[in-house]
Every structure is written in C-alpha cells, then in structure tokens.
Design a protein around this nucleic acid. Structure first.
Lengths: 146, 146, 146, 146
DNA sequence: TTTT
DNA sequence: TTTT
C-alpha cells in the first residue's frame, strides 16, 4: 500500500500494434514506442532514442489496434511491470513493459481515423473520439473487458 | 523532439543506496524500490510487488546516500532508460532503470535526519530539508555535478 | 481531443473532508490540501504553502470521508476544473478545484484505519486497503452518476 | 516538506504568449491554454473546455515567446499557484495559475520554427530544438535567469 | 480564447 | 523499429 507506479509517455509508435487473444477472448496488444532526447556531445547535437514496450489489455487493446499505427504520436499513461521469463537456454530473464491505463492520440484530425485491424471491422461503424481516451476499469479484476 | 518520458513512483527502498564513483569523481547511486498493488484472486486479497531499479547521478546520488535508507518511503520523478549489456555468456541483455530527476522523502520528520553514508559526514551538519527536493540541472551536460 | 489535464499532489489535509448529497444521493466531498515549498530569502529558509481545493464525487467521496482526516498525508491524482459562480454582489467569480480521480493514503499503517464519518458506519466492516486506491469508472459516459 | 505539486497539461494555446519585464529584466510570459473533454449528454456528444492560465518565468518566458503561438499544441509541466489580489472594489480575490517548469511543442516540424516576438530577434539565430525542452533551474533563487 |  |  501507500505506493504509486505511474508512467507518462509521449512518443511515436515504431510499429503497428500487434494483437493476440488469450484463451480465445482476452485481447492483448503491444507495440514499441520511441521517445527521444537531445544532448550536446563535443559541440554536436546527438539524439538518444529510448524504446518502450507498451502493452494494452482487453478493450484498450482493441482500441489500440483500431486507432494507432506505426509513426503516430501518442500520449500514454500506465504503469511499469517487469516480467520474468526463461530464455531458450533456460536462464531467467527480465523484460520491463509499460502496461497502459489509457492513451490519447496527438496530432492532426486526419490521424484519428480508425485503421484496418486484424479483426473484421463492424459495418457502419463511426469513429468515436471519446472512445480513444478510454480508461480501463479493472477494479473488479474479473478477466472480462468490462 | 515532441516526446515525453516520465516516471512517477512512490514506494519503499528495498536496500540502502549503493554509491560508486566513476573516474574517481562522478557519483552514481542506485537502489531497488518496491511498489505494490492489491487485487482479488478467488476472493482473497493478493499483493503484487513491483521492483524498480532507481539510478541517481552526481549531486542527486550524494543526497540519496545521505537521506535515503532501506525501508523509507520516497517519491521519485525520473525517466526510463534501458541499458544494453553483455552477460557472462556474451549474450546481449537489457536492463531497464529509472534515472531519477528528483526525489522527495515522505513520512515523519524523524525520517528526515541524514543517515551515515560511505563518505565521511561533515561535522556539525544540519539536515537541510530544501536539499532533499533537489532537482538536478544537467542542461549544460558537462559531466560535472553542477 | 488530443488533450491532457492532470494534477498530481502529495500533501496534508487541512481539514476533515466535508460531504454533501446532491439530489439526496450523489455524494460530493471536498477538503483543502496543503503542499509546501522551501526557498531561501536573504539567507533564511522560507516555507511557502499552497492550498488546493480537492473535490471528490460519488464512491470516491464516500471513501474520502471514511479514510481521510485532517493532517493525513495523501497522494491525489485528478484534473483541474475552474467553476464560475456569482458572488453576493452578483459579480462573476472563478474558483479552481482539483477534481480527484483517485487517491492513495501515505504514511504508517495505523493511519489507514477508517474514521467515523457523517454516515452511520456499517457494522462489522473491515478496512479494505484495496478500496483506498479506488479509481472511478466513468467509462459508460451516460451522464448519470454511475 | 514531503509534498508534491505537479500539473501536466497537453492543450492548445488560446492566444499568443504575452511577455512583461519586471524591474526591466526579469521576463514573465503568460498565455491561456485549452484542454477539452468529451462526454455524452442525452445521446449527444458535448465538449467541455477547460481554460488554464499558464505563467512562465525568465528564460522559459523568452522561449515561450519565441516558439509558442496561438493554436499550437504543447505539453506543459508545472505547479499550481494561487495568487491573491484585490479587485477594483478592494475585495480579496484568488487567481489560480500553472507556473511552468518546462514545455515541449507537439506537432509537425513546421510548427517548430521560431515566431516573431516582441523582442528584436538576434540575427543569424538558428532554432535549437534542444532549447525547447528547457528545464528552468531556480534552485539558487537569485532572481536571475540562470 | 484553442482544437477536433 | 518511430519521429524531428
């Protein structure tokens, strides 16, 4: 208790989001996000790019696939999570990810049109801006999207 | 440009900070920080603890050694940085750290008295609260503490 | 769209939360929160205290009344909202508030026991830590309180 | 001590920054910033815009005048400050402002060219991206820009 | 007074 | 692997 674990990122997607379905119905999307810093080294400006592994669950994963594309600028709020896994040699490794709580597309209106995703898109669907600033509710922790 | 990489943590130190001196004068301190979340699994409350590797440079490293101790509750602002290194088998590995920009002790006044550190403490020293909310200025990027 | 309005505060309550009930059932709680900064003026350390009006709605209001008390240290996330109102002379005035999205008690375990509130407390109730880091769900966006 | 007062905004400038010079040399700039939220009221999408008074000091004020213009999208980090003043009738009023610590232009490259400002521009000057993510150091609190 |  |  008495703790806070919060990450705020604004950066560009390095790839389109990839989505997987756990147990056939729980969506998990992920993508790499780049943030950059500039500093001077011997009088020359040098860019240092940091790559973040962003992971999104359930309804937020579906929204990511629909609205986010490689190259887009996005604001992300989430938390840090370090997973343990075994590599091919059976050695314990760590991977740190940003588990998103919400995201927010930044940029021009034309950037906000939904993109084709792996899932067949519902016919007659309208892009709904208010959906994009979706905040996932996992209070009940029931494994279901809502 | 046009990017933001910000981490905000409130958690407890898992160990006293460790300090090293690069090239004999640049200080680098680090410590593990725990944040926890509670969720319900099959009706029981389960605590999930996340461990973060916090790294502090120069004057901020010196302050960390002076004011922070295992078990203390601290607010930290910083950025994510993933380092690449080779493990013993020569395989490329990644380690994600939080590079602190500032920290802020939370808790009772008695927690704010400086602790003994590796460096000999200056005699007659007064704990200076305003030092603790130190914000490092590395705009000039000269590799020096100030 | 494409906008972010976020406030993060760690400070002490200046008073116990006050709660009101709109239309008999929607809870609204509020309290003043103090944050302080220290700076040097002519060699003397000066404390500058900032007072924030924190407002909480619905379930979060009920939790605030239950867990927060004058003097407690609390982490708050929320958004800025400036209300317009007319003062006694009929002149239009502005009041800026922090509308909380979540809060998190900081401090010792003994601080986390629920306090008596205006509402009769439910018998046999156990303080539930996980309730305190409540995040309000307004996903459905139906204009109704829940 | 033990307190945090942080505001994070992404929004559009409602006007060009205005700059004043205190005592002839300390710069203070300010501008209104809009953030918006969308919600459904009776089946219609309604936009609610929040206006923030952003204030910048010294070197940051000069950068704001140079790089920010009405309509631009900007990321701002700062703190809340409520000023007291007397209105024309001699009544004590409050005005809450966001005192910026840093800002970051968001958007297309063409948005990052410096704009004409009230001050005569230095000849031969190159727009320097790294200047834009300037973080003011007012640790020493000497009233001078650096 | 911004933007979508 | 992004972007400027």
């Amino acid at each position: 208790m008495a703790s806070v674990n919060k990450v705020i990122l604004v950066g560009h997607l390095g790839k389109d989001p990839e989505i997987r379905y756990l147990d056939g119905n729980v969506s998990v999307a992920s993508f790499p996000l780049a943030t950059s810093e500039f500093y001077n080294k011997d009088g020359k400006k040098v860019e240092q790019t940091e790559w973040h592994n962003v992971v999104l669950w359930r309804a937020l994963a579906d929204l990511a696939v629909k609205y986010l594309k490689k190259g887009k600028l996005v604001y992300i709020e989430g938390k840090l999570r370090t997973r343990t896994y075994e590599d091919k040699e059976g050695i314990r490794r760590f991977a740190t990810e940003i588990v998103a709580d919400s995201f927010n597309l930044l940029g021009r209106r034309s950037d906000f049109e939904p993109q084709n995703s792996g899932k067949p898109s519902e016919s007659g669907e309208q892009p709904e801006e208010s959906k994009v600033d979706f905040r996932e509710n996992d209070d009940d922790n029931d494994g279901l999207p809502f």
